[in-house]
């Protein structure tokens, strides 16, 4: 009997972002409605491997997850060594739309977690014709910063170790050890200053509180799911955001934290499968 080979396929696509060439690594599985997945700050697309392996999802959706530049297997652009990585709403949005154009995705559903959940609100508001629906996981229109990010990138502290130890508390206590530690490994592995650079977007350049009310959910439906143990994007942050977006649908997920996709895949599917069914019914 041969080894088990999984159906996930990983490839690179070349694209231009901000006038620079990039090789973007992505993984995909399934066929049907394109479902584009955006990982959290300081991590990579491996967070979505459980979704990519879920036949109940891939039966109807072409699930695609890519590593943002500087993350996972997508290298930083040429000349990275002389600057600090710093993500903005404009750069993040352009990166996602460049990737969609490169793969010629037809109005994908876009699902993002944490900073990915933040940017999908911008996409729904600014480019409603380009996306079939957005799903924000651990998403809100704004959060009050709760710690000093200068600890994340300095020579007397190991960046990977401190990032992982910091965010470890955002995993729910009920999440299985195997998945908790696999989630943390993404942070332990991240490049120097990358989590901090992502948090520039998350904290400094994505206050959408005055803009989310302009989202037209008739054009681009909005679904928001947040774990009860997330004290970074607190359930109250998500509920406030949902209240501001007429027609949005929101649910607070039990026994989950800030990384529902990877920290407890079985628990997460209880919440995401009905959302995907609704999107499919509306397509």
């Amino acid at each position: 009997m041969g080894a088990e080979v999984e159906p996930i396929i990983g490839r690179y696509v070349r694209t231009q972002i901000s006038g620079q060439s990039h090789r973007i690594y992505f993984e995909e599985a399934g066929a049907g409605i394109p479902l584009l997945c955006l990982h959290t700050a300081g991590a990579d697309a491996r967070q979505f491997q459980h979704l990519l392996l879920d036949e109940q999802i891939t039966e109807h959706f072409r699930v695609i997850a890519f590593d943002m530049p500087w993350h996972g297997k997508s290298s930083p652009p040429v000349g990275y060594q002389d600057k600090d990585y710093c993500l903005t709403t404009a750069l993040y949005s352009e990166s996602i739309r460049s990737f969609c154009a490169a793969l010629a995705l037809d109005r994908p559903v876009v699902m993002g977690c944490s900073m990915g959940g933040r940017i999908v609100l911008h996409l729904a508001q600014a480019f409603p014709d380009e996306f079939r629906a957005v799903i924000g996981l651990e998403a809100a229109d704004h959060q009050t910063p709760w710690y000093d990010t200068s600890w994340l990138h300095r020579p007397d502290i190991h960046g990977g170790e401190v990032c992982a130890a910091l965010i470890s508390g955002l995993v729910a206590p009920q999440s299985p050890e195997e998945h908790r530690w696999e989630t943390l490994w993404g942070y332990l592995q991240s490049g120097p200053g990358v989590f901090k650079g992502d948090l520039h977007f998350y904290r400094e350049d994505s206050d959408y509180r005055d803009r989310v009310k302009d989202i037209d959910t008739e054009k681009c439906p909005v679904y928001l799911l947040t774990g009860e143990y997330d004290f970074s994007c607190e359930p109250s942050d998500t509920l406030r955001t949902a209240e501001a977006i007429a027609g949005s649908q929101v649910e607070i997920m039990e026994a989950l934290g800030h990384f529902p996709i990877s920290e407890n895949p079985d628990q997460f599917r209880r919440y995401i499968l009905p959302v995907l069914d609704r999107i499919r019914a509306g397509s």
């Binding site: 710690y147 470890s168 508390g169 729910a172 206590p173 009920q174 009860e228 004290f231």
Partner: peptide, 16 residues
């Protein structure tokens, strides 16, 4: 053994 939300982590305690 299973702390409620907001009491499960040192920084959650601080933020709260």
């Amino acid at each position: 053994a299973t702390p409620p939300p907001g009491f499960h982590d040192l920084f959650a305690l601080c933020k709260g």
